[in-house]
Simulated assay, not measured.
Amino acid sequence: MTTPQNHGATPRLRAAREAAQEVWIAFGGEADQVWLRPLRRGFRHCFAALRDEAGWTVLEPLSGRLVIARLAVASGYDLPGFYRRAGLAVVGPFAPGPARVAWLPALLPFTCVGLCRAVLGAGAPRAVTPWGLFRRLAKILRDDKKKFLTARQY
């Protein structure tokens, strides 16, 4: 299958783009930068972890650079559980959505929240702070669970 985004791509790249992925967003952090101190404690930073059939990839925006790491663990490894045991708040899984279509580029600075929203795609909730993103994502999960639990089975 050749879609416009896959046109001319190698078979390996095409397979990687079409692979099913899950996105988990982790929140935490202390105020290692002065400008982070006004943010809610425990929600001063966020990053994304993506799982596909080959394993885990972590996207972590740090001050001044972006770290992308392919972890040397199996795709069945419980990375969200590891992060929870380390004291981070983790929400997910989410399916990455399609890219946003916009007439103008975003005028906001590149932040950890912006990266996580970009990974989630066009359906990502609007948020400026990690705490705001956490609340909105947790609400989405609660509402989905409630819909699933209250749906009538025929």
Rank of each mutant, 00 (worst) to 15 (best):
Q153V: 06
A69R: 00
F43D: 13
A95W: 03
R51T: 11
Q33E: 07
P125F: 00
L62S: 10
L108V: 10
F27T: 03
R135W: 03
A49E: 03
A72W: 08
L71H: 01
F27L: 15
G42V: 09
K146W: 07
G81Y: 07
W24M: 13
V101L: 14
V23P: 13
P38Q: 03
D144N: 06
W103R: 06
D32K: 01
L88H: 04
K147M: 12
V23A: 03
R40S: 12
P93G: 11
R84A: 06
L39N: 02
L137T: 01
A102P: 13
T57F: 06
I140F: 04
V91H: 03
A9S: 07
P93E: 11
G92M: 10
L50A: 10
R17Y: 03
V113I: 10
Q5K: 13
V58T: 02
Q5W: 09
G121R: 04
D144A: 07
T3P: 08
K145I: 12
E53F: 01
A26S: 12
D143L: 14
D78T: 01
T111W: 07
V73W: 02
Q153L: 15
W103F: 15
A89W: 04
R14W: 05
L120H: 01
G76A: 00
R37C: 12
G29L: 15
T57D: 13
G97K: 02
W35S: 12
S75N: 15
L36C: 12
L66T: 00
L108D: 13
R14D: 15
P96S: 07
S63K: 05
L149G: 05
L108I: 06
K139Y: 03
T129D: 11
T3A: 07
P38W: 02
V113A: 05
T10W: 03
F94I: 08
P96K: 01
L62P: 09
G97P: 14
T129Q: 08
G29Y: 10
E30A: 12
A74W: 04
R136I: 04
R40E: 14
G123N: 13
E22C: 00
L141V: 08
A74P: 15
L71G: 10
H7R: 06
R51G: 10
L39V: 03
T129H: 00
R44I: 02
R41T: 05
A118G: 07
A26N: 04
D52S: 12
L66D: 06
V91A: 01
T10R: 01
P109F: 02
F82Y: 03
C112T: 05
E60V: 12
A151N: 09
A15T: 15
L59I: 08
R85W: 02
G29S: 07
V119R: 02
R70I: 10
L141A: 00
A20M: 08
V101A: 11
F134I: 12
G97T: 00
T2A: 12
N6E: 08
L104A: 15
